[in-house]
Nucleic acid binder design. Structure first.
Lengths: 263, 263
DNA sequence: ACCTTGTTGTTATTGTAGCAACAACATTTA
DNA sequence: TAAATGTTGTTGCTACAATAACAACAAGGT
């Protein structure tokens, strides 16, 4: 009676990242389909060696995922899945909380400046991280904000990020199309640029150029939003004169060239 | 220059349960206090062997906890703690979600009854698990609900748990005192029982008997809420005739005896 | 030019800890 | 006795931890 051969591997991985070992996951899954099983039954159902079942069950009880009967032999039962996962998450959430505060304390120790940024080009991975960086750039804008990005990217949440830009700072948006009403807050330039829609790479391989953008603040800080074919967004950020100048030229060039072509 | 000897061990454990290894945690912590460090500097600050720093940094970049510069030598920077933890939690949360649904599917496969409960005495660990069990008991009540518990326990959230009891079912509450207005929904018996307040164990060692209670539903299902000295709540649940009878007697005995004594 | 010095990035090797797997044994129950 | 339960100890395995060694490259001095 080994009915547990069909345990999806993805499920095991998920449970592992919640702090369970392979055996713990297998035993818990096994117990979910068999109420009140003895240790030997657990062994049969889960495929875990009988001798290993005892320490594993101990750990699961400790983690509040199974309950034990007071009979001999002992019988075991699993708590319902949603609640079991909840119990695991509670621990992790608590760890996350204490880690957050402890790390924050360390983080604030160091002065914010730390010459770290100047003259360096940083790659940032993960959409969240990029957004955070952009929010910081916009918030600290003092003289100018220029954005050259595909509508796909703008629409999603870029516009919300632009809210904290001080009122005194002019904002230039360049994109290839615009849906919805035109915002009065920004200087909007809608240019149906082919460059922004698709590009052909090596020869005839059509490369979708979906979400990408270039952001320049105060002519001093630049961010390039890229997106690989895998869809994983990454970005370059820099305050170096070189990259800033490049971006400066890129934006003006595209704008000029597109204006000439279109009209 | 080894300024990292004072890394709290608890913090390392917390980060480990968020999916980081010891080295990953040390490197991330080190980077939090030093913006734009080279691999060698990371090695010096974190105490991690220089050769091990490279694979560790790779993993941290993959996990969206650090960003890389494009200079030579490469320079590394940590994302702010709250956001970093957020990035880690996002993965875990997603795993938890998929695990929940996958497990739920398995769980519903088996018929609910499965003779598992009868004649067995279960120990349940963890306050959440006990509450859930109680909620299930109350929801399925058909003839009677009897509760004998300290006010401390009742007040906290027991009253909310009693909401789903069908209106046709009488509910008896016995406790040692009552604060706030008396509920009309229940038959309330306030008995200033010394038993419920403190008991003396072996000889003169005063044992605080803070939160404990006995719950009986339909004269068929009983739960004993216990709480060790460590404050970790646990409970016994059973549908066995033996334990149910014991609880039945306990409640009536205490009630009778207290009534006789008090008046 | 040459050689030295130091740093960066990479690879290989060894050690270690926690989990996985099995064998063997003591204990209970029928 | 036989069968099943619960426990113990040993061994193997895998991921991580730790050290050593190496090639590539850039100063800097002679």
């Amino acid at each position: 009676m080994k009915a547990s051969r069909d345990v999806p591997n993805a499920l095991l991985e998920s449970l592992k990242s919640l702090g369970l070992t392979k055996y713990e996951a297998l035993v818990y899954i096994g117990l979910l389909r068999t109420a009140g099983a003895t240790a030997t039954e657990v062994h049969e159902i889960s495929g875990v060696p009988r001798a290993s079942v005892y320490p594993v069950l101990d750990r699961l009880v400790q983690k509040e995922l199974v309950s034990v009967s007071h009979t001999t032999p002992k019988r075991f039962d699993a708590v319902p899945p949603d609640q079991g996962v909840e119990n695991l998450m509670r621990r992790i959430e608590s760890d996350a909380q204490s880690a957050r505060t402890a790390l924050d304390a360390l983080y604030r120790e160091k002065g914010p400046g730390g010459r770290g940024d100047q003259e360096l080009i940083w790659t940032i991975y993960g959409e969240e991280n990029i957004r955070t960086r952009l929010a910081g750039m916009f918030r600290s804008a003092e003289r100018s904000v220029e954005v050259l990005a595909t509508w796909d990217l703008l629409r999603e949440s870029m516009l919300k990020l632009l809210d904290p830009v001080p009122d005194s700072v002019p904002v230039d948006l360049v994109t290839e199309r615009w849906e919805g009403e035109q915002p009065s807050r920004f200087r909007l330039h809608v240019l149906p640029l082919a460059v922004l829609q698709e590009i052909r790479f090596p020869a005839d391989k059509l490369l979708p150029y979906e979400r990408s953008g270039v952001f320049l603040v105060d002519d001093a800080r630049a961010l390039l939003w890229m997106e690989g074919i895998d869809g994983q967004p990454s970005a370059l950020y820099s305050e170096s004169a070189g990259l800033v100048l490049f971006v400066r030229r890129h934006i003006t060039t595209v704008t000029e060239w597109a204006r000439a072509t279109v009209q």
